[in-house]
Design a protein around this nucleic acid. Structure first.
Lengths: 233, 233
DNA sequence: CGCCTCTTTGAGCTCAATCAAGGTGTGTGG
DNA sequence: CCACACACCTTGATTGAGCTCAAAGAGGCG
C-alpha cells in the first residue's frame, strides 16, 4: 500500500532527527500512528490561527512561519520552524485547543500531521517524549527572550540576531547559508519593523560584504561582523 | 520540628493552587521532598542569570521579576511571576542547566525551593505534572507572543496590554488592582521603552481617570478604555 | 500583456529616546 | 537631628532612528 510506504519513509527520516534520538523504531511508529504526510506549497496555510486544533506534527522538509494576526496590517511572525521542529504539540493537552498562530509554508514543504488523539494516548503518557517537547519549547522561548532583551537595541542588532539564530539551526558550523528562503518583508515582520528599514540595513551590509543574497537565499560572508553588532550594544 | 511545620503549611497552600489541582496530598509531599521555604526581601535575588541551576520552585507569596541582562544599561524584564507560578522547572531536564534569567523579588516574597533531583526523580516521571508545567510554559509563551505581535503598535498599546495581562492573573474579574507593586521603570523595562515615556502615558491616564496609583499599587478605574486601546490599532 | 510579489531609493515626518533639571520620600551614618 | 545618598517620579526641550508615503524597476506567471 502506497500510504504505508510514505509513512515508513517518513519514520526513517524522523529517526534521524533530534526529537526521536534514542527512541526505538517501534515507539516512533506508535507515536506516528494515524499520521499523514502533507505536502504544502509556498504560502499555503497548514494551520489557521484560532481554529480548533485537531492535529499537531513535525516538519519533515522545508520551513514554515508561525504568524499572529495584528490589527496594523501585516501579521507578525513569531517563529520560523525548520526541519525537525514540532508544531502544535504544546497545546494538545489543553481541553479545547485552538492554534495560537497561523502556520504557513515558506517554499514547498513536507509535514507529518498526527491526530490529537495520538498525542493524548501515546505522547502524553511517555515522560521522555514530553520532556523532549519541553526542551524544544524552552529553546523557542529562550530565542524569544533573547529577542525581547534586544528591544531597545537598534534595528541592526535585531536583524543580526535573527540571522545568527537561523544560522545556528545547522549542526555544522561551516554552513553559511540560511536554511530557508526569507524575504525582507518576513524579516521585518519578525523583528517588528518596516520592510524599507530592513532593506536599507541589508543593502548596506551587501555593499560592505557582510552578506549576499540571491533569490531570497541569504549567505553570510562576514559572520564576525554580525556577532560584533549583537554584542556591541 | 519547626522546619517540618513550615513545609506542611506550604503544602497546604500549594494544594489550593492550580498547578496541584486534583493531586493527592501524598504526591504533593513527594514532589516537594527536600524543599525549603525561602523568604526574600524586596530586590533580593533568588536565582542568578547564567548560574548552574540546582533548584526550581513555586512562588508562594508576593512576586518575582524574571530579567535578562542587556548591554544597554538596564536589564530587560521577561516576565512577572506571581503566586502559584513555577520558576525554573522547564530547564531542570537539561543536561547541565543554567538559569536563563535573574529572578528578583518585588516586595517581600516567599518561595518554595525544591532541589533538581526531586524534579528528575519525581516530577519528570509523572506525565500529569509535566503537562501542567507545559501548560504554564505555554501560557507564558502565549503572553510573550501577544506582546510580540504588538511590536509595531504605539507604546500606549503595549503598556495597556501589560496591565490587562497582569490583571487577568486574578481569577475574580472584579479585582481591579494589580497583584504586584510595579514601578514605572519596571514597566519600561518590560515593554522595552524608557521610564519617561511610560510616565508621560500613565500620567495622562491618571488625569483622564483611567487608572490611579498610590505607592506603586496600580488600580484600574476604566478597564474598557484600556481594552479599546489594545484593539484599536 | 497585465498582474503580482519582491526589492529599491528618496523625502518628510513622528514617536519616543535622550538629556537635563527638579521634586519627593526613605533610609543611613555622622 | 541633620546631611547625604538613593530610588522613584515628573516635566520640558531637543533630537534622531525608523516609519510612512510615493514612485519605480525587476522578475515570474497565467
Amino acid at each position: 500500500m502506497d500510504h504505508k510506504k510514505v509513512i515508513n519513509s517518513a519514520i526513517n527520516e524522523l529517526l534521524g532527527l533530534s526529537i526521536f534520538e534514542g527512541f526505538e523504531r517501534d515507539f516512533v511508529e506508535q507515536a506516528c500512528a494515524g499520521g499523514t504526510v502533507v505536502f504544502t506549497e509556498h504560502k499555503e496555510t497548514l494551520f489557521k490561527f484560532g481554529e480548533s486544533a485537531q492535529c499537531f506534527g513535525i516538519v519533515l522538509n522545508g520551513a514554515y512561519k508561525l504568524t499572529r494576526p495584528s490589527k496594523s496590517g501585516e501579521d507578525a511572525i513569531m517563529h520560523f520552524s525548520t526541519v525537525g521542529d514540532v508544531i502544535g504539540a504544546f497545546i494538545m493537552s489543553h481541553k479545547a485547543p485552538c492554534y495560537p498562530v497561523n502556520v504557513i509554508a515558506m517554499g514547498p514543504s513536507r509535514f507529518l500531521k498526527i491526530p490529537r488523539e495520538v498525542y493524548i494516548e501515546v505522547w502524553s503518557r511517555q515522560p521522555s517524549i514530553i520532556l523532549k517537547i519541553q526542551n524544544i519549547l524552552s529553546l523557542r522561548m529562550s530565542q524569544m527572550q533573547h529577542q525581547k532583551s534586544m528591544l531597545k537595541a537598534p534595528l541592526t542588532c535585531k536583524i543580526a540576531l535573527l540571522i545568527i539564530d537561523l544560522l545556528h539551526r545547522h549542526e555544522e558550523a561551516e554552513i553559511l547559508t540560511l536554511p530557508l528562503p526569507l524575504t525582507r518583508r518576513e524579516i521585518a515582520d519578525n523583528v517588528g519593523s518596516s520592510v524599507e528599514s530592513v532593506i536599507r540595513i541589508m543593502s548596506k551590509w551587501s555593499k560592505e560584504g557582510v552578506l549576499e543574497t540571491n533569490d531570497q537565499q541569504i549567505k553570510i560572508l562576514n559572520m564576525q561582523k554580525l556577532i560584533e553588532l549583537i554584542n556591541d550594544r
